[in-house]
Amino acid sequence: MRKFLLHYLLPRIAQYLTVIFIGITVTFIIPRLSPTDPVEAQVSMILSSGSAVDPEAIEHMRQALTEMYGLSGSPLEQYIAFWGRLLRGDLGPSLSTFPTPVTRLIGQALPWTLGLMLTAVILSWIIGNVLGALASYYPKSKLIYAIDLMSQAVRPIPYYVVALVLLVVFAYLIPIFPFSGAYPVGTRPSLTPSFVLIYLKHSALPALTLILVGFGGWFIGMKSLTSNIISEDYVVYAETTGIKERKILTQYVMRNAMLPQITGLGLSLGTVFSGALIMEVVFQYPGMGMLTLQAIFRNDYSLIMGIAIYSIIGVATSVFLMDLIYPLFDPRVRYQ
């Protein structure tokens, strides 16, 4: 138990804190290194929108913005204040929907993204792994060969392009799925069966895209892991003992090949999250991706900062949770 704490848990906690520390520090530094002064940008934008120009009011606004962005004081003071606000969970008000707090906007968008992402990640992981294992255990199957080809063909293409193609094919040429959104304009989200059905129908295409792009990586990874593992001693031995094929495939081959894939799942969450953002933009899905797009179009600096910080903390935490779950699957880590 002590060994487990010392050699497994402690380094993971340290890494978790490092990720957050580096990520937050990077988001702190970037605006301060950038040649654009967010305050001036904001001021000039408000000025150009044609409201009355009162020099005193502008100066006042400048101060308020400097204060709000945490840009007053020495860099060190700013940095400490930055962490202080973060720890209090205060990301400031959104500028485009003043004075709604950024955290509330993110809180509204996050569940949509999480729902989409979790479904897609879990499904693509399972499908990819099962098919990948079958592919290398039954290398002669034509169907699996076709799936292999398809996954290899989709894998390198950027999320955006895959989403675009699917959108064109399934919403435009063969309109079996709705074009955009998570539900039609005018309906209110609720937990009624009819709404859930509508929601599922709208989410199918974005989820399908994420799965299609995502499962290829797991498929290929699992295929190569499996083809290595089937020549491991314990598999050859199991075959020699006459254990039934299905049992060998599941309990000997897949069970072991799964372990690096669980680690991989943790490592991939950041990429999948980025992919989900893009997906939402293409399909106009009301999650974090759409929120980001709005923030960009409305020049909402504090919202973009908030989204970046939330994403870093969210992904780092999920990766850490995966690290916590991993020992359940690997007795060598559990009982060191």
């Binding site: 491991e232 049992k247 069970r255 372990l259």
Partner: peptide, 28 residues
């Protein structure tokens, strides 16, 4: 039956020993 070279690695690392007995007896 067979006692393999490198028996160090012939046992499934993620399965208890009893399970290996079980798998073999079950299958036969």
């Amino acid at each position: 039956s067979y006692v393999m070279q490198g028996s160090m690695s012939v046992l499934n690392p993620v399965r208890k020993i009893i399970k290996t007995f079980e798998d073999i007896v079950e299958s036969h």
